[in-house]
């Protein structure tokens, strides 16, 4: 399924979401940014939970605000701050899901719960943070949704559980036409999973790039004050003052490697790119 944000505007006191982005069919798209950058607002907008002040959001060309119940059955959701009532247990969840979704796969869901060590009779409020996170993801994937909208799905999970969840998401993407919009504070998750990444800051998209381009072509140049003065700054995106001089973000790592072999250039990960773009001084 294809998810499109078309010039979406949502205004709050002191904050405005202003965003255009697309999750292509068959793709995993990451949405990254600091706390309060607008990720959760964007997710709520995508789910039709808030009214927009401008623009629209479509799923396969249909406005999410007017999406019929049958179409909503094709969307699986994990929200970071909410889920099933803590007073319910997994047996309750199974009954509810059977009542809510025609395509709920009970046996598969219970099998996954068993594999992830989630007890059926224990109230969810007594689950650990990791168990709650696993349950949310398993629920979202339990009825054959064609689009997953996942807000911080791996938050609170240990490394092993996180890998298991990521493997499940990779398996999910093997089905043709499936798509995922995901946000995470764990950049390594996004680097290994996403086809492309949008970076959001103060409600605005500040960067959109394919993940392999981010990892292959972006770099952080470490230079002294003198080296900085002599540097061609045509491809410098952001500058940050450091103890030794400057850290510079570029998306033309090779240009600087070839023309300035004496300077140190590090591979930029998503964390570094966020830090440089948000706390550095924009050059372009």
């Amino acid at each position: 399924m294809k998810l499109e944000f078309n010039q979406v505007v949502k205004k709050y006191d002191g904050f405005q979401l202003d965003c255009t982005m697309t999750v292509e069919e068959g793709c995993v798209t990451g949405l990254i940014g600091r706390n309060g950058a607008g990720k959760s607002t964007a997710f709520k907008a995508a789910l039709g939970l808030i009214r927009l002040d401008g623009g629209n959001i479509t799923v396969n060309g249909k406005d999410v605000a007017e999406l019929p119940a049958k179409e909503k059955e094709n969307i699986g959701v994990v929200l970071s701050e909410s889920g099933f009532s803590g007073y319910l247990n997994i047996k309750d969840v199974v009954s509810i899901m059977k009542g809510m979704y025609k395509k709920f796969r009970k046996e598969e869901f219970l099998e996954c719960c068993k594999r992830f060590g989630l007890p059926q009779d224990k109230q969810i409020k007594d689950f650990s943070t990791g168990m709650k996170a696993k349950l949310k993801v398993l629920v979202a994937m339990s009825y054959g949704a064609k689009l997953l909208i996942l807000d911080e799905p791996t938050a609170g999970l240990d490394v092993v559980a996180r890998d298991e969840i990521l493997d499940m998401l990779r398996n999910y993407m093997e089905t043709e036409g499936n798509s995922i919009l995901i946000s995470s504070h764990i950049s390594s998750d996004l680097e290994s999973l996403c086809d492309d990444v949008y970076m959001i800051d103060s409600g605005k998209i500040v960067l959109h790039e394919e993940t392999n381009v981010l990892l292959d072509e972006f770099g952080v140049i470490k230079v002294t004050g003198e080296q900085y003065e002599a540097l061609d700054k045509a491809y410098i995106m952001s500058k940050k003052k450091e103890a030794f001089g400057y850290a510079l973000l570029t998306r033309e790592k090779k240009f600087y490697q070839e023309n300035y072999p004496e300077i140190a250039i590090e591979k930029a990960g998503i964390d570094q790119i966020i830090t440089m773009l948000i706390s550095g001084t924009r050059e372009v």
Binding site: L49, K72, E73, S82, G83, S85, M100
Partner: peptide, 18 residues
């Protein structure tokens, strides 16, 4: 009250209900 608890309404309206 249970529906409202811990921002549960947000989650509830992700279900195929109006």
């Amino acid at each position: 009250s249970y529906d409202y608890f811990e921002k549960g309404m947000s989650f509830l309206f992700t279900f195929p209900i109006s």
